[in-house]
Design a protein around this nucleic acid. Sequence first.
DNA 1: TCTTCTTACGCTCGGCGTAAGTATC
DNA 2: GATACTTACGCCGAGCGTAAGAAGA
Lengths: 285, 285
Amino acid sequence: MDPHLLRTFVAVARLASFSEAARELGYTQSAVSQHIAALEQDLGAPLLTRRPVTPTAAGERLLEHAAPLLLRLDAARADVTRIAAAPAYGLTLAASPTALGARVLAALPPAGVTLRVVARADVPAAVATGTAEIGLVDGLAAPSDPLRLPDVAPLTTHGVSEEPVGVLFPDGHPLAGRDAVRLADLADARWIDAPDTALPLPHLRAANGGHGFRPALRYEGVDVRMLTALVAAGHGLALLPCSAGEGAAGVRVVPLGAPRVVHRVECVYAGVPAGAAGELVGALG
Amino acid sequence: MDPHLLRTFVAVARLASFSEAARELGYTQSAVSQHIAALEQDLGAPLLTRRPVTPTAAGERLLEHAAPLLLRLDAARADVTRIAAAPAYGLTLAASPTALGARVLAALPPAGVTLRVVARADVPAAVATGTAEIGLVDGLAAPSDPLRLPDVAPLTTHGVSEEPVGVLFPDGHPLAGRDAVRLADLADARWIDAPDTALPLPHLRAANGGHGFRPALRYEGVDVRMLTALVAAGHGLALLPCSAGEGAAGVRVVPLGAPRVVHRVECVYAGVPAGAAGELVGALG
DNA sequence: TCTTCTTACGCTCGGCGTAAGTATC
DNA sequence: GATACTTACGCCGAGCGTAAGAAGA
């Protein structure tokens, strides 16, 4: 189970071609073939069907393992080299789209910051592999409960802020005038699943015993104004941190009452941040 | 970052000796030396001090990564081979000590079961590496919230039961007569930390903002009667699922009121369990 | 001086590329 | 027959063991 073989395997599976993978990895097609053969012999099971090139059941399982495995490997290398490496000028901050509140923006140093917005699930990976010094992730959680982040590496996390979440209604919706709504009443409403912009629906579905909260529309963009426009147009409801939805035209934000969930932002970093990173972490703390 | 090198590194670090590690791994001392040298050159930083053999700062970081990495590697191999392997006779169940309630015991098939009690954190690993077909873990969680398990591999989890938790008081304790207690009132009480028998204190400390719940005594055994005896002798309080503490002499179990936490048991397995394992999962579901 | 890690050196085996073989479309 | 994976084979380098060297207790 050499990582090289694993890397080759995922490339072949992704590209559905030995020769394409060879091109991408800088090997000959023959070498790729031998890699796969070695893996299959090692594990004692065929991993790919040839012609067409498709993972077998065993290959599917291996694929599920391979990505986090290779990620951890990169994370380990980054973590070790980080200690020896000279601290670069500048500071890169990886953040999920709705994690950047006013508080964070105010705490940023005046110059030398790169802000990299990535999908929620990729923030820990970015920090672990050293792509960013600091990460900011947001998500839904019970009050003062930590977020459930994928553990790609031993990272330190750190609550930055919590604020109530609200449901985004179009103006004129029968519930739009309420002071608060209960989530249970909305399980069967039309919802917009906007995993990169709003708060993720699967979390609500899980909290509701796996039922309800089926998306009527999926929005894969990252623009909050687009999302509010979709809600205003009646395509469905969305869940947002209250502050993110205020002031938009054609929509109303109604705070969520019943299940006590909050929008929580966490700061994540590896080891002991130094220099500008350390100051920012301190300012956020 | 060959896994072999990593394995050698952890062995050397654990044994604090190149030659001991060589013996254990079936290499010559020279090969071990070369392994470490290769790792250090690859990562560009010294990982161990020699004489005495101790991990450097970089080595410490690598050690933190190495164990989960090697575990995941084993898990991947087990997961893939599991598909091809012939289903063995018998069924091995890995369980944490307080996960085995009456419901589970009743659901066990009449013969061919091996029950392996391991530490809470090792249950997912046992299932992932194929040491056990099914795992049963328990822990504290908010009602209907899943447990926070280390993700060694893509495993399926599955709530089995939830029951209230209670604080174990010695008879005559001023609070022992109450109908319910609030955890916040007990932050500064004397506690017994019995991570393998009772419910883990760190969870409570985290819920309390990192304060309080400092253990007065640590019990590393696995015997519930021993724990109740320690409580009865006034060494401290302990947190248990209510049913586990009932009927013991010299102690009273008072249900926990305020923070809504329950004792939750989850069933964990890999892939789609077949045969006896499938039946048991069904019976627990 | 003894123990323990490092370095030197030779051997073997693993792994890659070239090229020929084979199977599927 | 063209395309795409497999197998054969030779070469180079990686990695192990033996053995000598160096450094600390």
